[in-house]
Nucleic acid binder design. Structure first.
Length: 584
RNA sequence: GGUCCCGUAGCUCAACCGGAUAGAGCACUCGCCUUCUAAGCGAGAUGUUGCAGGUUCAAGUCCUGCCGGGACCGCCA
């Protein structure tokens, strides 16, 4: 429970006592009472809307009720000062000793500070990337990869039981194309001149090695055979090779998912026939013809009967086809089977991270999930909007046709894994964002990665310097948690503690909203306050951390510095970014 | 035509699932500065939150309609 929830609980007790004393009616709804940090620091440490929320139903004036609540709050041991303000806010300040206790808490818990139990161990499945296994990942995949990974780490920190997953789309026609492309490279490896790669096949160089590997393993045995004889084997081999590529790419980004599920394996195991039978039994499948989309005129539209899922019964705009004209299942049909599979594995909460180009897919997948689980499973879909790559303020135009697109690997090689991860997480995933390859490497204030990393490195640097006068054991968090902190009393120091004490609440809010980018803003705020304090020591030597003639003060200040380093490290861990000891 | 996302300071973006005077960074103006290894530091100015209604004690936030940008729209995945 974060400190705001703790005080909220105490406030609810107070209101309960007022109800018992007949100062308030018995039928009040207390759920809307909040205890939050005020936006404006001059409004104290905590603020509650209790009086405004309760006054109306209770038939009282907000400010009068606020005064009564304030009176009771004043009696709490860690509450120093209470004020009624504005339309009926009750603002209160906490004692310095309370903030010192918070600091000790941080030092005791280390990077586990901020761990929460709001997830209550609930099982959640986060599926992300799930790119077609037809080549290396490129930048478009990076945002989804990082977002999904950070979301998973965040939910884990918030107390969920998280499984991360990659769905291998290895059952569609694209992997047939992959196999044909690999076959061409196989012939090339055996000495044929293949010339230009024909339109419709994948031209990438990464298939050359696949062809060579097949030639080395199997010799020329496939050369004289027809496509239907070699296709399956080439598909299997090249998909495996591409997945190795993808896994390597992801690993470079620090992403290692728990489970990889093959679409083809699901289909082969009859999972799709199975789920379609289930839906059919529920009367949710029928043969019918769809209307053409209004206002659009598809070139060769003609109505034809199809196997349809009644998605409209679950909020979708139209019913959705499940079977292609060749008799095989659509991608959607297979995906229904996959989500049923996840549901049967115990996931009542599933999160899919998709690119924005899958926006049209959201309603039908949610509809299907509701249908197959009888409404018991919840599916959340995070759409990641596009990333515009820039370089020194100039947009980098990419086109696949010219082969000029940027791979994920190239991006990581250029700026580093931690920079990619952090920057991708500095914006809400449903806003488009700019990513400037030049700016993110600058050592300046407007580069958030640098700014946050620098704050951590600066803390570590101070702690290293302190070793001239103090032993390593003195500087351990466990030791610093026991030193007297009474001399931590400067407003800037206390403000720093307040921000750190807000970390658990930030984790919970970000996890509840499923918005990792909030962590980036939090870290930036924390770094700002720390750098500010450091700079104050430039002007006023009394505010410096290390004082060779005052061991007690130095230890107290180093406890503060150590706490800052731990909270930053705790935050960076949610992003999967390593905190740096020094920046050089 | 429909669905989804976005629209906030000159620019890039926040605003904690309704709270008080909408905030940061960059750019801009004015001062200062030679380091607890370090990005210079401090101060100042910057808004009809796309538009119009509605709900509420309270709306950038929720609802309705419009405008603008993006993504998508029957057997591609």
């Amino acid at each position: 429970m974060n400190l705001f929830e703790t005080f909220r609980a105490q406030l609810v007790t107070i209101v309960g006592e007022m109800i018992a004393a007949k100062a308030l009616p018995t039928d009040l709804n207390l759920d809307r009472i909040t205890v939050e940090p005020p936006r404006d620091a001059s409004h104290g440490d905590l603020t509650t809307n209790a009086a405004m929320v309760l006054a109306g139903p209770a038939g009282l004036k907000p400010r009068e009720l606020a005064a009564k609540i304030a009176e009771q709050l004043q009696t709490l041991p860690s509450v120093m000062k209470v004020e009624v303000a504005g339309p009926g806010f009750v603002n209160f300040e906490l004692s310095v000793a309370f903030w010192h206790d918070q600091m000790r808490d941080i030092l005791d818990q280390g990077v586990a500070f901020g761990d929460s139990r709001i997830g209550q161990g609930k099982k959640v499945n986060v599926e992300y990337v799930s790119a077609n296994p037809t080549g290396p990942l490129h930048v478009a995949h990076a945002r989804g990869a990082v977002t999904g990974d950070a979301l998973a780490l965040l939910l884990r920190k918030a107390g969920y039981d998280v499984t991360t997953e990659y769905y291998i789309n290895d059952a569609g026609s694209q992997v047939d194309t992959l196999a044909r492309s690999a076959y061409l490279r196989y012939r090339e490896a055996l000495g044929e001149t293949i010339g230009e790669i024909p339109e419709g096949l994948y031209p990438g160089d990464y298939l050359i090695d696949v062809g060579k590997a097949l030639a080395a393993r199997d010799g020329d045995q496939w050369l004289i055979l027809e496509e239907d004889q070699w296709l399956a084997e080439f598909r299997k081999f090249s998909v495996a090779a591409m997945m190795d590529l993808v896994r390597d790419d992801l690993q470079c980004l620090g992403v290692v998912q728990d489970v990889f599920t093959s679409e083809k394996a699901l289909v082969d195991a009859g999972a799709v026939d199975d789920v379609l039978q289930t839906l059919s039994d529920k009367g949710l499948i029928y043969i019918g013809a769809l209307e053409p989309p209004k206002g659009m005129k598809p070139d060769d539209w003609e109505p034809r009967p199809q196997t349809l899922f009644k998605a409209t019964e679950f909020g979708d705009d139209t019913d959705r086809p499940l079977r292609k004209s060749d008799g095989s299942w659509t991608y959607f049909a297979n995906d229904i089977a996959y989500h049923l599979d996840k549901y049967r594995r115990g996931f009542n909460l599933m999160i899919d991270v998709f690119g924005a180009d899958h926006g049209g897919y959201v309603k039908r997948m949610k509809a299907a999930t509701t249908a197959i689980s009888g409404g018991e499973a919840e599916l959340e879909i995070k759409l990641c909007q596009m990333v515009h790559l820039m370089k020194g303020g100039e947009p980098m135009r990419m086109s696949k046709r010219s082969g000029n697109f940027v791979t994920l690997r190239e991006l990581i090689d250029e700026v580093g894994k931690d920079v990619v991860r952090f920057i991708m997480l500095t914006r809400s995933s449903d806003s488009q964002m700019e990513f400037d390859l030049q700016k993110v490497l600058e050592q300046s204030r407007d580069n958030p990665v640098f700014y946050v990393q620098y704050a951590h490195a600066r803390c570590r640097s101070v702690l290293r310097n302190a070793q001239e006068a103090l032993s390593v054991a003195d500087l351990e968090p466990s030791h610093l948690a026991k030193v007297p902190l009474a001399r931590i009393d400067d407003p800037a120091e206390l403000e720093l503690i307040r921000i750190m004490a807000n970390w658990p609440r930030t984790v919970e809010a970000a996890a509840t909203a499923q918005e990792p980018h909030r962590i980036a803003y939090y870290l930036n705020d924390l770094a700002t306050q720390f750098h500010g304090l450091w700079n104050m020591g430039k002007d006023d030597a009394r505010l410096r951390f290390i004082h060779s003639d005052d061991r007690e003060l130095t230890l107290a200040r180093l406890a503060l510095v150590q706490a800052v380093a731990l909270v930053i490290a705790s935050g960076l861990a949610v992003f999967g970014v390593s905190p740096m000891e020094e920046l050089r």
